[in-house]
Design a protein around this nucleic acid. Structure first.
Length: 491
RNA sequence: GGGUAGAUGCCCGAGUGGCUAAAGGGGGCAGACUGUAAAUCUGCUGGCUAACGCCUACGCUGGUUCGAAUCCAGCUCUGCCCA
């Protein structure tokens, strides 16, 4: 809000609003950062704190206490916004947004965090009244970001919505080392080209969550590539080996008799230096990042900078429910997974894990009174909708229900041209062809025979095809089920 | 630099001359049951083959042998202990 906005009367604000109503937004007013008013204003009806002034076509008057509810209303009233994350500031003319008090911000920003170091420091920084520089470092070690990454990205978005400066650090340099955090083995090295390619898709996907316009992107190669050996030694001299070896992941590897390469020890040092270069006020990360982030605090102190506040988010368990979600474990849900895939993966998680997902991905607790399956469908629908649009979320749910609840194998089946089929068709050839053409899966004949055909997994229009050598003929509209998760419909 | 232990299938791990495509476990895949949940149960889990069988595979290279994951030599890599 500009200073002049703060002194505007409600009437003036209403007038402004009506004028700019084409934005499709609603007028929302929350408590001003500076409640004190000029005495000359006393006679004028000032915009009251916390009042939510409602305009047609809305209807009801509500009271807003938190940013979370504020956000909710914005989403509900701006249906034309892109599905993923209509950012508050984009949905509303910025001049109508009043600053949220530091205390309220604190409550929102620390929600769901595994650890905040410290809330007191964070509050002090929030009270400075300037946008904070909030760092989130990502290593483009894999091209896709998954739901595990989004936990911290969501937190970063909350900062962004409150008017703080999101700084997305692409660890193009550090990625070639590989973060040893939480690792039980040395990471395979990546080439620079791989890293750059990954970084690109990575940021594209991150902007499904963050507001691109308001995000500062930095590459740590920009400074690390310029450093001399002198500089590196100077940095290294500030950290002791004992400190490094305190780390649980290193200790475990030593105890387990596994190698630790020296370059892996550099990782926390580099990540720490990133914070100095960025002049971060806050750094976000997973709990496994705590040590690395703390190194950043040390460096900042030695450089005479204010120390960053540490906010670490819990690690999201992957689909197996035990190990953390990770590309390399293959237990992840990618942000760019197809809607049907995403929905299906979410439905396959255990009930226990569903509660975690509710908490960390939706930021809410599951209603324990409902049926777990309903709750899971709702979770899957919401998350699918978040990344693909509400309509896609609804679609995915409808297809899923038709296919699995009502056992309609054809629903959601992948279409396949009947003309692409080879001549002299038998069951084995048909299954191999469909796996390859529709899903890109190469199955050996033995596997097809043993797993899919003999077991009765392969079914044509509901009829089991258990003889691999039997001839089949396919007609348009036939549905071939290959497995629980794979079916094709011929066109 | 010295000593010592080791390298087996997707992973862990047993195997110390033929009965070994290699025990067992994990993971994965398919099926049953379900809420495509979890748990549980069953089957499969190097490739080709209808099958007999053939090919490929126990770090690399070479050797001994009718026959080598297994014995020998050299090499590469790793752990641990000492310096």
């Amino acid at each position: 809000a500009t200073p002049s906005d703060r002194t505007k009367t409600e009437r003036e604000l209403r007038k402004d609003f009506m004028r700019s109503k084409k934005d499709g937004a609603e007028l929302l007013l929350t408590r001003t950062a500076r409640p004190q008013r000029n005495h000359s204003d006393r006679n004028r009806k000032n915009v009251n704190s916390r009042d939510f002034l409602n305009f047609p076509p809305c209807g009801s008057i509500q009271r807003l206490n938190t940013v979370a509810s504020l956000k909710f209303i914005c989403r509900a009233t701006a249906p034309s916004e892109p599905p993923a994350h209509p950012v508050l500031a984009r949905a509303l003319p910025s001049r109508y947004i009043r600053r949220v008090s530091p205390e309220e911000q604190l409550a929102v920003l620390t929600a769901g965090a595994a650890k905040v170091l410290s809330e007191k420091e964070l509050l002090e920084k929030l009270r400075l009244g300037r946008p904070l520089r909030v760092k989130l470092g990502v290593d483009p070690t894999a091209p896709d970001i998954h739901f595990g990454h989004t936990v911290a990205l969501e937190k970063l978005r909350q900062f962004q919505e409150l008017g703080h400066q999101a700084v997305l650090l692409i660890g193009d340099f550090t990625a070639t080392i590989g973060d040893p955090s939480g690792r039980s083995a040395t990471r395979p090295p990546l080439t620079r080209d791989e890293v750059l390619a990954n970084a690109e898709t990575y940021t594209d996907q991150a902007f499904k969550i963050l507001d691109k316009e308001k995000t500062e992107i930095v590459y740590n190669g920009d400074w690390f590539r310029k450093m001399s050996y002198d500089d590196i030694l100077r940095l290294n001299s500030r950290v002791t080996l004992q400190q490094m070896l305190q780390r649980e992941d290193f200790r475990n590897r030593i105890e387990a008799g596994q190698e630790i390469r020296l370059h892996e020890l550099q990782y926390p040092i580099m990540q720490g230096w990133d914070s100095v270069e960025i002049r971060a006020d806050v750094e976000l990360g997973g709990t496994d990042q705590l040590f690395n982030i703390l190194v950043g605090r040390d460096f900042q102190k030695e450089e005479g900078q204010p120390q960053q506040v540490v906010i670490v988010m819990p690690l999201l368990e992957g689909l197996d429910g035990t190990r953390k979600m990770s590309k390399s474990y293959g237990n992840y849900i990618g942000v760019s997974d197809e809607p049907q895939d995403m929905f299906g993966k979410l439905m396959s998680v255990s009930d226990e894990l569903m509660d975690r997902y509710y908490l960390l991905l939706l930021g809410e607790a599951r209603d324990p009174s409902g049926h777990p399956m309903e709750a899971k469908k709702s979770l899957a629908e919401k998350l699918t909708g978040r990344y693909h649009g509400e309509a896609a979320g609804n679609d995915a749910r409808a297809t899923w229900e038709a296919r699995f609840s009502q056992r309609d194998v054809g629903a959601g089946a992948t279409g396949l041209a009947i003309s692409s089929l080879p001549a002299d068709l038998n069951v084995l050839l048909l299954a191999a062809h469909c796996f390859k053409e529709a899903f890109g899966l190469e199955k050996s004949n033995g596997e097809l025979r043993k797993q899919f055909i003999t077991s009765g997994s392969v079914q044509l229009n509901g009829e089991k095809l258990t003889d691999a050598a039997a001839a089949v003929s396919i007609q348009s509209g036939d549905v071939l089920k290959l497995s629980k998760k794979h079916a094709v419909k011929f066109v």
